[in-house]
Design a binder for these strands. Structure first.
Lengths: 190, 190
DNA sequence: TTGTTTAGATGTCTGCTATCATCTATCCTG
DNA sequence: CAGGATAGATGATAGCAGACATCTAAACAA
């Protein structure tokens, strides 16, 4: 049942995409390898032809998730630079859709406390993802001089991630919506 | 090896304190019951004399952690009401000590993505803890009228939790410190 | 004091996990 | 086209998890 090189590469991507989704939705420790493989349409046995350990899968899946999400955010941020894209970015991040749909969810918010406990390689990936996210936000703050812009972008990221984490914990939809709304206001007030 | 009623109650508290610490430090799914019991100075067998399931332990341990942390925050917030206690509260939360020591860590930041996946009872406890935390912050915003104060307090909580989550993920201490500092500034700028 | 209750220790059970061995059918190289 | 290489399926293994049965010594009620 050997597959061609291209098919193998596609399978590798399938596994990564499945893992990136399942980890964000159900947590890293809570997601078994069989679950990931089944979600990719495979059985558990072929896993070690593609990855040497679960830790490596975690690192690669996080990298994939960051790349996908940040490419999309960057694309929308740089599309029409004349508009006020900061509010577009913030309103997109702090939206009900982002809260409820994990297919393009930010790994920082979806895996917050899991990433802290991950191995060094995964934390490196997460740190790089955070840095890139800050840079994108910073690019929307052209009114501020660079040193202040970086600090400001950093604090905006913190507020957005925290709001999303809390909005998903809380069990009353009205409170969840209030968290998102008030944080949009905190960030975007003039 | 039966113990007196008072000793039994003390043991129950010991288990709760051990669980509250281990869950925050290592995660809920990552912490086994034997680990909790050993941390409380016991063996795994006696567990079901005190709790009917791990889920119940999680709920009670979260409640305990919230109560301990919020009592302390409230105590410091209401001590000298003449001072600017908002900055005291924010600087205390967004401190290196809070980031590095899990013994009195805020469960919202330490268990962020774990709480979202917890059972209904635990999420209810977490939601109540969040509400109480917001009320305490709101009490420090006496310059604002009530409706705005609640929204503002909510966004401050989001920023603090997100900053703490990120400060623990990132692998460079300088970046971690920058996250805490810039978020203090975002919240406390006039 | 005597008999009952029970906190906690020891040990077991079932199920799930990550990891690996083996097998087979297909790809790819020579 | 022949033969080695390999993607993925099947199956096994070892370890750990939560949950529970049993045992015992001590607390308590009579």
């Amino acid at each position: 049942m050997k597959k061609s090189k291209q098919e193998t590469a596609e399978t590798h991507e399938d596994i990564l995409n499945a893992a990136a989704l399942e980890f964000r939705r159900n947590g890293i420790a809570e997601t078994g390898l069989s679950e990931v493989m089944a979600s990719a349409g495979l059985t558990h046995g072929g896993f070690y032809r593609h990855f040497e350990s679960k830790e490596q899968l975690v690192a690669e899946a996080c990298e994939k998730a960051f790349a996908t999400v940040l490419d999309e955010v960057e694309r929308r941020a740089t599309r029409n630079s004349a508009e006020n894209t900061l509010s577009t970015l913030v309103n997109g991040y702090l939206s009900n859709r982002h809260r409820d749909d994990f297919r393009n969810a930010c790994p920082l918010a979806a895996l917050g406390s899991d990433l802290r406990r991950a191995d060094a390689k995964t934390r490196k990936v997460a740190s790089a993802g955070f840095d890139r996210f800050v840079s994108i936000v910073e690019g929307q703050l052209d009114k501020l001089p660079p040193p202040e812009a970086k600090a400001r972008a950093t604090s905006i990221m913190a507020a957005m991630v925290g709001a999303m984490v809390l909005a998903r914990i809380v069990d009353k939809p009205s409170v969840s919506n209030r968290i998102l709304k008030s944080t949009r206001e905190l960030i975007l007030r003039t």
